[in-house]
Design a protein around this nucleic acid. Structure first.
Lengths: 107, 107
DNA sequence: CACTTACGTAAGAATATGCTTACATATAGT
DNA sequence: ACTATATGTAAGCATATTCTTACGTAAGTG
């Protein structure tokens, strides 16, 4: 969660969401220096949010969606944002009015 | 997102997830001083994560689940973890993920 | 073995964050 | 109006974070 707090790291994740990019390619998209990017990648790697593959002298990175499961669980546990609705419907096929209308109807 | 980066703020959110508590009640659950709590609440309020209701000299706070929609959108946009979500949570029966949850389905 | 390329790591500076104490404000009761 | 209660705000300190420059390391090329 702390890893995603920094906007720069979210941008990096966007970049390697679908494409697998080298560290240099990633750095080329930003104004900051390559070492700074390396440090951000390290944080993301330690949080299991990116996967590293070595290819010669290069290191290829790609986002790891599974790494977001903690974030997902946080949302599920503390605010059952519409998920509870789905769960109730499938499992009990009935009561799905936990508190869905009290705060979730916006936008 | 930045607001949720701080563990203390997540704890506060847990506390007022279901109960509506006054600022003092919230502060009583932690070791840190009341002003520190006030500052955390301010951050949460600015991020639309809590709702404030004034009651005499007290201010009652409660979590605002819909304030997490940005976080949800982040997850949906950058990794459509919805498939994984459905897989994990609804793996047993036939997926009826079409009608009831407008946010969890294809858009 | 040099030498280059691609990258990470170390050390430190600049800034942001989280906390404290002291003070301000707002409402209720006497 | 005065006092008490509940709470936010200001100023400042201590620590954490993010960046920079300088250096180290590992793999490919002549």
């Amino acid at each position: 969660m702390q890893a995603l707090a920094q906007p720069r790291r979210r941008e990096i994740l966007q970049l390697i969401r679908n494409n697998e990019l080298s560290a240099g390619d990633i750095a080329a998209h930003f104004e900051i220096t390559r070492p700074a990017i390396s440090q951000h990648i390290k944080v993301l790697k330690d949080s299991n949010l990116v996967h590293e593959r070595r290819d010669g002298t290069r290191r290829m990175y790609r986002a790891r969606p599974e790494g977001l499961s903690d974030l997902r669980k946080f949302l599920e546990m503390f605010w059952d944002y519409r998920l509870q609705l789905l769960k109730d419907e499938v499992e009990s096929s009935g009561q799905s009015q936990n508190s869905p209308t009290e705060g979730l109807t916006e936008e």
